[in-house]
Design a protein around this nucleic acid. Structure first.
Lengths: 334, 334
DNA sequence: TTGAAAGCGATACCAT
DNA sequence: ATGGTATCGCTTTCAA
């Protein structure tokens, strides 16, 4: 026989269960949803039949009639990056507390994936939270009418919300800390690749200038530990006088730490290092990383909170509340 | 007026768009789904109307009629644990390649959350992949008729599949490596808390015995870096003669590394350390961690592959194929 | 090219 | 306590 394998096993519906148990569909529904107004024996009979047939209600049919389940799309550039992992974990937790489901999309840091994700997401979730590098126009086109909360990026269009990351005071404190420690030549490992210098660099420039030190000792580094190592090498080659480094993020800082050890500069004695993000990971390296720390938990929770408000249309938070501030968290590296 | 805030803004349906564009619902459907058999001007008119109204098709209604979208539930004990992050990332990638959606549930390492998750998941996804600590009976009860792939845990019931982790050869190689390095007193930091000793300990015991060394130098450690540090302290207190340590996983190993440095034992000279898992994280610490490495990418991909086969009923993989073997990956810590 | 009608699989309301 | 019927929002025949 040819039909045996692969012949779609028609879905078992409530109707099948009803017939098998010799009752109506409504009665099946009652039994399965634990309503009262149903006799014990009938209920048991229905339950048995359902079990026997391996019946599972269609989530689509159910969702259609009881308009309750909420699903959020969470878009993350790279789940393997510990920073995004922390954000994702906190968003998941906040969503779970509300009984929402979260579909996670990892765009693998590729713009193409992002668009593909948006197309697919647009039809599968009620709202979106996450990181996007594409233009607002593109974002807009694929998500018509859907609440969107952007993280770590400003928005212009009124229909978007965004969580702003404010590291100004934190970076200022970091530079102040270094200056207080006697450092006057402070370098920075910025990110590279992107067109414009980062906002974090702007904060650094402002802070350095405010302390009367040269804000120009900056080189770009790929956003990875290896990138951080290479960046430190480049920085020291260009500016051998540097005694302290502020980095775009903790991963880069950890790479710098490793490289410093390799070239025999003891941290923090011969070189002070301060990262950005405040990853839990920073506590695992030696010495523990000093970092301008972001409250990632709050970041994820805030994004979910706001998307919830947008979803219900009730009292969305304003820009002033949608801010996560970074603050200097002392470790042992500076 | 009292009604203003919170008054549910009735959902915009295809009907509204049809009326607004002065066509029938089918025509709207055609325009939106890019079918042919529709005049250009009509199509444009419909599209405009849809845009104007902010119309988005109901995923439930659509899913009900086109039975295509597949959603997998991925259950993870703790997304912040880098091992699970790696598994999750690879599963996401494999699912995306198939066009499936993945709803991620973080059970926060709590059994209670697990059951809650199961109940909710049972109604919202087509199949489940992940880690569970609850009994198969419970698992069975809440997931009737749904394909399930368990990771890192054996199954008994026929309806489950599981991906087995085979570290026997890898651990053997690790012990052999240590013995070749002159170590004869090798301790282990096992996990604690659970009732039975871990399978990884069994592998260690077998390997140690095979090499004619004492397999009994074992203490339990909480599964965290701090736990690893405390574990090492306890191990050295109980067995001061130990010169090498094999740990339950990399996180614990990293904690042990840190503690070793704190007490002035240089790694690997004064103490050799070998972890288990092969996390990317292991490359960030100093010295880079030697580890019995699992191919986490393959792990996630395999789980998704199998769940796909179960879903279509086509040719599921057998136990022999559902194995991920660990192998010794040299770092600098042993 | 367009529209009318029939489902998809469940729940809710109203009878009985 | 149980069953009939309408309905959720969309796509897919089938006619016109």
């Amino acid at each position: 026989m040819v039909l045996s394998a692969g012949s779609e096993p028609r879905r078992i519906t409530i109707h099948d269960v009803a017939r098998s148990a010799g009752v109506s569909r409504q009665t099946v529904s009652r039994a399965l949803n634990g309503k009262d107004d149903i006799e014990g024996s009938t209920k048991q009979r229905v339950l048995d039949a359902a079990l026997e047939l391996g019946y599972r209600p269609s989530r689509f049919a159910r969702g259609l009639v009881r308009q309750d389940t909420t699903t959020i799309g969470l878009v993350i550039p790279d789940l393997l990056n510990p920073f995004f992992t922390e954000v994702a974990a906190s968003a998941l937790e906040a969503a779970r507390a509300r009984g929402w489901h979260v579909v996670v999309y990892d765009t693998a840091d590729r713009a193409a994936e992002e668009i593909g994700t948006l197309q697919v997401i647009g039809t599968q979730v009620d709202a979106v939270v996450g990181y996007f590098s594409c233009s607002e126009d593109e974002l807009d086109r694929f998500t018509r009418g859907m609440p969107i909360v952007l993280i770590g990026r400003e928005h212009r269009m009124a229909r978007f919300s965004s969580i702003r990351i404010d590291g100004e005071a934190g970076v200022h404190a970091a530079v102040a800390h270094l200056v207080a420690g006697g450092h006057t030549r402070i370098g920075m490992l910025d990110h590279d690749g992107r067109a414009e210098p980062s906002v974090r660099r702007d904060w650094f420039t402002a802070a350095a200038t405010a302390h009367g030190i040269d804000p120009g000792l900056v080189v770009g580094a790929a956003q990875s530990a290896d990138g951080g190592g290479a960046g430190l090498t480049a920085l020291l080659a260009a500016h051998p006088e540097v005694t302290a480094v502020f980095t775009f993020n903790d991963i880069v800082a950890i790479g710098a730490l490793r490289e410093a050890r390799r070239i025999g500069r003891s941290v923090p004695r011969d070189l002070a290092v301060i990262g950005f993000d405040g990853l839990q990971l920073g506590a695992l390296v030696e010495p523990p990383l000093t970092s301008v720390a972001l409250d990632t938990r709050r970041l994820g929770a805030l994004a979910i909170e706001q998307v919830g408000r947008l979803l219900t249309g009730v009292d969305p938070l304003g820009a002033d509340d949608l801010v996560v501030r970074a603050e200097l968290r002392p470790g042992g590296s500076a």
